[in-house]
Amino acid sequence: DELEKRVKKIARKLNLSLDQVEEWLKRNNNDELVEAVKRLKKK
């Protein structure tokens, strides 16, 4: 979905793993995208 695409884009842009992106999003209080990261990690 759109949020998952955004997460992947962030990960690529910042050259981070999904775990690192998740931490980064949590620090930025971006719950919506944190949920998207969790969905991606399950895939």
Rank of each mutant, 00 (worst) to 15 (best):
residue 8 K to Q: 14
residue 31 D to N: 12
residue 26 K to G: 08
residue 3 L to C: 13
residue 32 E to K: 09
residue 8 K to M: 14
residue 28 N to Y: 14
residue 12 R to W: 05
residue 24 W to M: 11
residue 26 K to T: 11
residue 6 R to F: 14
residue 13 K to F: 12
residue 2 E to L: 12
residue 38 K to E: 09
residue 25 L to E: 00
residue 36 A to S: 03
residue 8 K to W: 10
residue 11 A to D: 02
residue 27 R to W: 12
residue 16 L to R: 02
residue 13 K to D: 15
residue 43 K to V: 08
residue 43 K to S: 09
residue 20 Q to V: 04
residue 36 A to I: 11
residue 3 L to H: 08
residue 27 R to E: 14
residue 5 K to N: 12
residue 8 K to P: 00
residue 34 V to R: 08
residue 34 V to F: 08
residue 17 S to G: 06
residue 16 L to P: 00
residue 30 N to E: 15
residue 38 K to N: 06
residue 32 E to M: 09
residue 1 D to V: 08
residue 17 S to M: 08
residue 17 S to E: 06
residue 41 K to A: 06
residue 20 Q to D: 10
residue 42 K to Q: 13
residue 40 L to Y: 04
residue 27 R to P: 01
residue 28 N to G: 14
residue 12 R to G: 07
residue 26 K to I: 10
residue 37 V to Y: 00
residue 27 R to F: 14
residue 23 E to Y: 04
residue 7 V to T: 01
residue 41 K to C: 08
residue 25 L to V: 03
residue 24 W to N: 01
residue 32 E to F: 08
residue 34 V to C: 06
residue 12 R to E: 13
residue 37 V to K: 03
residue 9 K to I: 14
residue 30 N to Y: 15
residue 32 E to Q: 10
residue 16 L to G: 02
residue 34 V to G: 03
residue 19 D to A: 10
residue 33 L to W: 05
residue 21 V to T: 05
residue 22 E to K: 05
residue 12 R to F: 06
residue 1 D to K: 09
residue 40 L to N: 02
residue 40 L to K: 02
residue 3 L to P: 06
residue 8 K to L: 15
residue 28 N to H: 13
residue 11 A to P: 01
residue 24 W to P: 00
residue 26 K to V: 10
residue 37 V to S: 03
residue 35 E to S: 05
residue 11 A to R: 05
residue 40 L to V: 09
residue 22 E to D: 05
residue 29 N to F: 11
residue 33 L to R: 01
residue 18 L to C: 11
residue 39 R to W: 01
residue 7 V to A: 05
residue 25 L to I: 04
residue 6 R to P: 00
residue 36 A to L: 08
residue 18 L to K: 00
residue 14 L to A: 04
residue 16 L to F: 10
residue 29 N to W: 10
residue 41 K to S: 03
residue 19 D to W: 05
residue 37 V to H: 02
residue 22 E to C: 12
residue 11 A to H: 03
residue 35 E to M: 06
residue 29 N to M: 12
residue 29 N to D: 09
residue 28 N to T: 14
residue 27 R to H: 11
residue 36 A to Q: 02
residue 36 A to P: 00
residue 7 V to Y: 02
residue 24 W to E: 02
residue 21 V to A: 03
residue 13 K to V: 13
residue 19 D to S: 09
residue 29 N to Q: 10
residue 41 K to H: 05
residue 8 K to E: 13
residue 29 N to V: 08
residue 21 V to M: 14
residue 34 V to E: 10
residue 20 Q to I: 05
residue 38 K to A: 06
residue 31 D to Q: 14
residue 34 V to Q: 07
residue 12 R to M: 12
residue 28 N to A: 11
residue 18 L to N: 01
residue 38 K to F: 00
residue 34 V to Y: 10
residue 23 E to I: 06
residue 13 K to R: 13
residue 15 N to W: 06
residue 6 R to E: 14
residue 25 L to K: 00
residue 18 L to R: 00
residue 42 K to Y: 03
residue 5 K to L: 13
residue 38 K to R: 13
residue 16 L to W: 11
residue 16 L to S: 02
residue 21 V to R: 00
residue 26 K to A: 11
residue 30 N to V: 13
residue 43 K to I: 08
residue 36 A to H: 03
residue 26 K to C: 12
residue 33 L to N: 02
residue 27 R to L: 15
residue 14 L to H: 10
residue 26 K to R: 10
residue 21 V to K: 00
residue 36 A to V: 09
residue 9 K to Y: 10
residue 38 K to W: 00
residue 7 V to S: 01
residue 4 E to I: 12
residue 20 Q to H: 04
residue 13 K to A: 13
residue 8 K to D: 08
residue 16 L to T: 02
residue 34 V to D: 04
residue 33 L to I: 03
residue 14 L to M: 09
residue 30 N to L: 15
residue 43 K to W: 10
residue 40 L to T: 04
residue 15 N to C: 15
residue 40 L to A: 04
residue 29 N to K: 11
residue 7 V to D: 01
residue 13 K to Y: 12
residue 40 L to Q: 03
residue 8 K to R: 13
residue 23 E to F: 02
residue 7 V to F: 03
residue 27 R to M: 14
residue 41 K to Q: 10
residue 10 I to Y: 01
residue 30 N to Q: 15
residue 10 I to E: 02
residue 18 L to H: 01
residue 40 L to S: 03
residue 16 L to Y: 08
residue 39 R to V: 02
residue 3 L to M: 13
residue 15 N to L: 04
residue 5 K to S: 11
residue 31 D to Y: 14
residue 20 Q to G: 07
residue 22 E to N: 04
residue 12 R to L: 12
residue 35 E to F: 00
residue 7 V to K: 03
residue 11 A to S: 05
residue 20 Q to M: 07
residue 2 E to Y: 12
residue 11 A to M: 15
residue 24 W to Q: 02
residue 17 S to V: 06
residue 15 N to P: 01
residue 1 D to Y: 08
residue 28 N to F: 13
residue 26 K to F: 05
residue 1 D to A: 11
residue 22 E to I: 12
residue 11 A to C: 15
residue 4 E to A: 07
residue 9 K to E: 15
residue 2 E to W: 11
residue 17 S to A: 06
residue 41 K to G: 03
residue 23 E to V: 03
residue 21 V to I: 11
residue 36 A to Y: 03
residue 24 W to S: 00
residue 1 D to Q: 10
residue 39 R to Y: 00
residue 17 S to T: 13
residue 35 E to A: 10
residue 13 K to G: 08
residue 17 S to P: 06
residue 8 K to Y: 08
residue 38 K to L: 02
residue 14 L to E: 03
residue 8 K to A: 13
residue 6 R to Q: 14
residue 20 Q to E: 15
residue 20 Q to C: 13
residue 34 V to P: 01
residue 1 D to W: 06
residue 25 L to Y: 06
residue 10 I to G: 00
residue 22 E to P: 01
residue 1 D to L: 12
residue 1 D to G: 07
residue 2 E to F: 09
residue 1 D to E: 11
residue 31 D to G: 08
residue 29 N to T: 09
residue 38 K to Y: 00
residue 43 K to D: 07
residue 25 L to W: 02
residue 5 K to R: 14
residue 6 R to I: 15
residue 2 E to K: 11
residue 41 K to P: 02
residue 6 R to G: 01
residue 10 I to T: 02
residue 36 A to D: 01
residue 18 L to G: 01
residue 5 K to V: 11
residue 19 D to H: 07
residue 16 L to D: 02
residue 26 K to S: 11
residue 20 Q to P: 00
residue 6 R to D: 04
residue 18 L to M: 06
residue 21 V to E: 00
residue 13 K to M: 14
residue 12 R to N: 11
residue 35 E to C: 13
residue 32 E to H: 09
residue 41 K to W: 05
residue 19 D to V: 07
residue 1 D to T: 10
residue 42 K to V: 11
residue 9 K to S: 14
residue 27 R to D: 12
residue 15 N to A: 08
residue 31 D to P: 13
residue 33 L to E: 02
residue 15 N to I: 03
residue 20 Q to L: 09
